[in-house]
Design a binder for these strands. Structure first.
Length: 161
DNA sequence: GCCAACGTTGGC
DNA sequence: GCCAACGTTGGC
């Protein structure tokens, strides 16, 4: 299957690039997703080697800050079974887990954050889901074309005027 | 901090 | 199965 591309959102105060950089092997599992559409992407569609745009929400401006790679495909989210976790789900069971995670490894930090306003005004990126009003989905598919444009923009510092 | 968008829950 | 109430996300 062809390599796919994704965008994954996180509030940098809760879990941001600075956290990911400190992880062993700069790898983490993406726990806590409790939305079925996002769950389905992780469980059914994401494959090892897929590219991920790491996006910081809840900051000004929100921005893509790094690229990552999927290093393990979907498996049950351990936090759903942990009574002490805020992600504990009493309705889930090990026999039929409700929530899934993938493993994510940092690929490279962008030379500069690519902010949401710039995404919205860049030709070729205006149809990205993240650019649309009211788009709350925390995992979104990205096209190969969009991926290329984002990387080209994030690869170098913005020209100063 | 506000609030629009939108997903989920639960009574009927 | 409808839909009002409610809770959360996330840009601004």
């Amino acid at each position: 299957m062809a390599k796919r591309f994704w965008l994954m959102k996180s509030d940098p105060e809760t879990y941001g690039l600075r956290h990911l950089k400190k992880e062993k092997g700069q790898t983490t599992y993406w726990d806590g997703v409790r939305n079925y559409q996002a769950r389905n992407f992780m469980r059914d569609d994401m494959r090892v080697g897929d590219g991920v745009l790491f996006y910081h929400s809840q900051q000004d401006p929100p921005a893509v800050v790094a690229t990552c790679k999927i290093t393990r495909a979907g498996y049950p989210d351990p936090s759903q079974f942990d009574k002490r976790s805020k992600y504990f789900d009493p309705k889930s069971s090990k026999e039929s887990p409700r929530w899934y995670v993938v493993d994510l490894t940092l690929d490279r930090e962008l030379a500069r954050p690519l902010g949401l306003p710039e995404i919205k005004e860049t030709p070729g990126l205006e149809d990205m889901m993240v650019a649309r009003k009211g788009s709350r989905l925390s995992i979104q598919p990205v096209t190969a074309e969009e991926w290329k444009i984002v990387l080209a923009l994030g690869r170098r510092k913005r020209k100063s005027s």
